[in-house]
Amino acid sequence: MTALGALIRRDIRIALRIGGGALIGVLFFLTVVVLMPFAVGPDLALLTRLGPAILWLGALLSSLLTLDRLFTADHDDGSLDLIVMSRTPLELACAAKALAHWLAAGLPLVIATPVLGLLLNLDATATGAVALTLLAGTPALTFIGMIGAALAVTMHRGGLLLAVLVLPLSIPVLIFGVAASQAAIVGPLPFGAPFSILCALSLVSFVIGPFAAATSLRNGLD
């Protein structure tokens, strides 16, 4: 347990340090949201209607952007090999790393959402709904994305390959995340149904993600 705790503390500390890149994800999120009015026009009514979708797409893309760092830095300096060889089960180590990554890169996105909601003219309920769905959904994005990150690091290819592999798998999270936010804002569906499916997707990804990532790391590193 202490090994995992140490791993989480270490990863968060690295991520929050200058150059770690976790906060760049938030900056990217902000930039994507700012770009939207230029693309669709400054029509506040339209932006309000598209708001949850824009916020979710922004969060999806920026979580993808930071995922690249989940394993590459550790692979470059050799600590990934130590983690693979250590007595701690690799699945748990992967889960710990993903948790740390979410705390450092996913949670800031959720915290930034209310500010960005103002830019898109979302009212308090709508902002709250989007933030809540992001809180439930971004862990799933991190844990699914971890599979792609583990595959990409064993291939020595990052970036584009990671995005191509991960994005199709994150479609269900996007569907239910946006649907739950829309349900809370305009109805007519109850908020509970899509939201609980979103939570279920997150829980499933907690199981699949670490196992798949650990398998690919074990098989891929030489």
Partner: peptide, 27 residues
Amino acid sequence: RAARAAAVLTLVGAINLPIIKFSVDWW
């Protein structure tokens, strides 16, 4: 090495395909 990585992705895809199918139907 490519085979093992692709195998992980294929199996993850196989688990995810029913979920994706369900989500898209629902959507």
